[in-house]
Simulated scan of single mutants.
Amino acid sequence: MATPHRIAIARRRTPATRSRRELRVEQILQAARDLFGAQGYDATTTAQIAAQIGVVEGLIYKYFPTKRALLLQVLGYWYDDMFGDYTRELAYFPTARKRLHYLIWRHLCTVRDYPRLCGLMFREVLSADNDYRGSPLHAMNKRYTQLLVDTVETGMRGGEFRTDLPPRLVRSLVYGGIEHEASRYLARYIAPHQQAAADAPALDVGLLADQITNLLCDGLGPRPAAELTETRA
């Protein structure tokens, strides 16, 4: 059965209009995603990826110059899939607080549903100081997190949130906090041989989304004028 990610990739173009090259690239990306997720990036070889789809190893390099380039493309497709139609979905929520909660909840769902890909993103890409910055994947990540910045700015303009805190700090607190909070959950997928992984708790997406949203919005809420005067004194 095709995974949601496979379905999303297949929808990009109809079978009648997809070239042989596109179909081959899709096969390689799917095999790489499966093996990177199951074995980890370092333990996976391009020979294994080729064997997974029944081709010679050299064919992989016809489409991807390095294994690293292949990893970035796998994660790029995943990010593209995650976006879905965020703009349309966010429009259903009448307040900035509800939109903020939705973005936090959806990000947590992604961590819960795609733990191995999240682990690859955190360990192999975000922690590396090489080809990530300036890459298409970096641009996608900026677009993805900008949705939260835009939501906070909208709340500030509408009077829901205080205006003396930088929206980018809120973004860092949300995504950095989720990464830290979910680290033990991800450990069972990133390093299943470690004892810590066996003891890792489940990720309660609904509860954690509520807690983060409440913590942020209580702090972001407009402050009484008297309190502001006292703080500045």
Rank of each mutant, 00 (worst) to 15 (best):
G37E: 15
G37Q: 07
G37D: 12
A38D: 14
A38M: 09
Q39G: 05
Q39Y: 07
G40H: 02
A43T: 05
T46W: 03
Q48R: 07
Q48H: 10
Q52C: 04
Q52A: 14
I53Q: 04
I53A: 03
G54L: 06
V55E: 15
G58I: 08
G58Q: 12
G58N: 13
Y61Q: 03
K62G: 12
Y63E: 15
Y63W: 11
Y63G: 08
F64A: 02
F64V: 08
K67V: 11
K67C: 07
K67P: 02
R68V: 08
R68G: 06
A69I: 04
L70I: 12
L71C: 02
L72S: 07
Q73D: 15
Q73V: 13
V74R: 01
V74D: 04
G76T: 13
W78Y: 13
W78M: 00
Y79T: 04
D81E: 15
D81M: 04
F83P: 01
D85N: 13
D85F: 05
T87E: 15
T87N: 10
T87M: 04
R88A: 15
R88H: 11
E89S: 07
L90E: 12
A91I: 03
Y92V: 08
Y92K: 07
T95Q: 08
A96S: 12
A96Q: 02
R97Q: 13
R97N: 11
R99W: 07
L100K: 01
Y102H: 12
Y102G: 02
Y102T: 11
W105K: 10
W105N: 06
C109W: 02
C109A: 06
V111N: 03
R112K: 12
D113K: 03
R116K: 08
R116I: 01
R116Y: 00
L117G: 00
L117A: 07
L117Q: 10
C118L: 06
M121T: 12
F122D: 14
R123P: 00
R123C: 08
R123V: 14
V125Q: 03
V125M: 08
L126C: 05
S127N: 12
D129S: 09
D129G: 09
N130W: 07
N130S: 10
D131F: 04
D131P: 01
Y132T: 09
R133P: 01
R133E: 15
G134I: 11
S135I: 10
P136N: 09
L137D: 00
L137I: 05
H138R: 04
H138C: 10
N141R: 05
K142H: 10
R143H: 11
R143E: 15
L147T: 06
L147G: 01
L148P: 01
L148I: 10
V149F: 02
V149T: 14
D150A: 09
T151F: 00
V152G: 00
E153K: 09
T154M: 09
T154S: 11
T154P: 00
G155E: 02
G159T: 13
E160Y: 07
F161M: 04
R162Y: 13
T163H: 06
D164C: 06
